[in-house]
Design a protein around this nucleic acid. Sequence first.
DNA 1: TTCATACTTCGATCGTAACCGAAGCATGTC
DNA 2: GACATGCTTCGGTTACGATCGAAGTATGAA
Lengths: 228, 228
Amino acid sequence: MKEGPDIAQIGSLIGDPARANMLTALMGGKALTATELAAAGGITLQTASTHLAKLEAGSLLSQRKQGRHRYFTLADDGVGKLLESIMGFAAGRGHLRHQPGPKEPALRKARICYDHLAGDYGVRMLDSLVASGAIDAIGDGLAVTAKGEDRFQCIGIDLHGLKSSRRPLCRSCLDWSERRAHLAGSLGKALLSNFFDKGWARRTAESRSVIFSPEGERQFLQLFPVEA
Amino acid sequence: MKEGPDIAQIGSLIGDPARANMLTALMGGKALTATELAAAGGITLQTASTHLAKLEAGSLLSQRKQGRHRYFTLADDGVGKLLESIMGFAAGRGHLRHQPGPKEPALRKARICYDHLAGDYGVRMLDSLVASGAIDAIGDGLAVTAKGEDRFQCIGIDLHGLKSSRRPLCRSCLDWSERRAHLAGSLGKALLSNFFDKGWARRTAESRSVIFSPEGERQFLQLFPVEA
DNA sequence: TTCATACTTCGATCGTAACCGAAGCATGTC
DNA sequence: GACATGCTTCGGTTACGATCGAAGTATGAA
C-alpha cells in the first residue's frame, strides 16, 4: 500500500504555482534574493519567505547569506534535472501556460537550463558535436571521443579539470521546447561559460533566455554546423 | 516570470497523498479497478472517483471499461519513468515514508517498475549484461551489441519484433532503492515477461514486489552472474 | 545613534479542494 | 422483473494552506 519514497511531498512542493514560478526562475542558474523570488512568484515578501523555508526544508533549495541579502539557488543539478524532466513531460502533454508571452520565442531559441545551454541552439550544438564525431551517443548516453578531446581543447575547455570533478562530464537533458536532448553535465556548463566569457552571448536580467550578439551568433553557427 | 510548461499542474496532481498512493500502486503495471485504487489510496470510492477523473484529465492515467469494471493504468511508460525519477529524487534526499513496512525488504530486492524489473535484482541484471558485453553502455545510454543479439535469442526474446515497435529497445531507469540504473524499455519489459512465463517469478497480489521461486532464483542468478 | 533595507515570524482571513453520505446511473446476475 | 455490484454525481462539511498586514529581528548606511 504505502510503498517506497514519498513522492507526494515533493509533488506538493512543486505543485503550488507560486513555488513553481520561483523554482522556474532559479532554473536560470543565477542566485536570486528572496525579494526577487517574491516578484518571480507574484507574491509578497512574507509569503515568499514561508515558501522558501518550505522548499529549503524539502532540500530543493539551498541558501547562503551575504550581508543583509539571502541568496537562493537550486540545491544541486539534480533538482534542475528533475524540473526540466517535469517540464518536458508537461510540454509533451500540452500542459502549457495559458498565455505564451512575448519572450517565448527567445526562450525557445536559447535559454539556460540550470547551468547549460538549452533550446534550439542547445539541441543544435549537441547534434553537431555528435555528427562531427566529437561526442559518442548511445541512446541517452553521451561520451567524449578522442577526437572530441582535441576539439574541446581548441575551443578552450579544460577537460582534465572537469574530469576530476565528481559531476558527470556529459549528460543528456531532455529539452522541453525541442523535445530532444541537449548537452548537460560539467561539459555543458563549461561550454556555456565559455560563450559568456568570449562575449558571444549574455544572460538577460529577468529571464532564462540567452541573447547572442550578432558576431557571437555567427561564430556559434560556424563552430557547430548542421548538414543540410 | 511565467515561462515554459506548467509544472505546477502536474506537481499538484502528484502532490496529493491519496493520488500519489494510487499512482504508486499503478507502478506495479497491472490495471486496477477504481475500487482497488480507492483501497490503495486509503479513501472511499467516491473520493477516488474524483481523483481518478482528475488524473485522467491530466493525462497521467488511461482507463478502459470492461463490463461493469473500469480498469486504470498509467497513460504510458513516460508516466512510469517520471514517477520513478521522482521516487529516486525523493529517496536520495531522505524523503522516505515514515513507516518502513514489513514488505520493504522484498520491495528492495525485486519489484516491478511499471513493466520491467527493478530493485537489487534489476540492477544486478543490467550490470551483468553490461559486464558480459551483451549491452553497451555510455553514460546513461544503452544499446544491444551483436553478442547481445545472440544472447537474448537464446533466452527466448524476439528482438526483431521489439525493434519494430516505436518504443525504444533499451532505456536506463534510475532505481530509487539502489540509486543505480536498471534496464527499462521494451527489452526490459520482454525480459520480465519472460521470467514470468518461465515460472521463475510471479507478481504479488497487493504489492509491486516480485517473488522468485527457489528454482527461478537459482536460474536467474546463474544467467546473470556478477564477478566477485 | 538613527534610519533604511532585507527578511522572518505572528496572527488572522479566506478559498480551495479533499472528503464522505446519499442518491443516481449502468451493467451484470438471478 | 428484481436485485446486486461497480462506479459517478451531488451537496454540504471540514481542514489545510496560501495569503497578507503588522510587528519583530538583523544587517548595513549615514
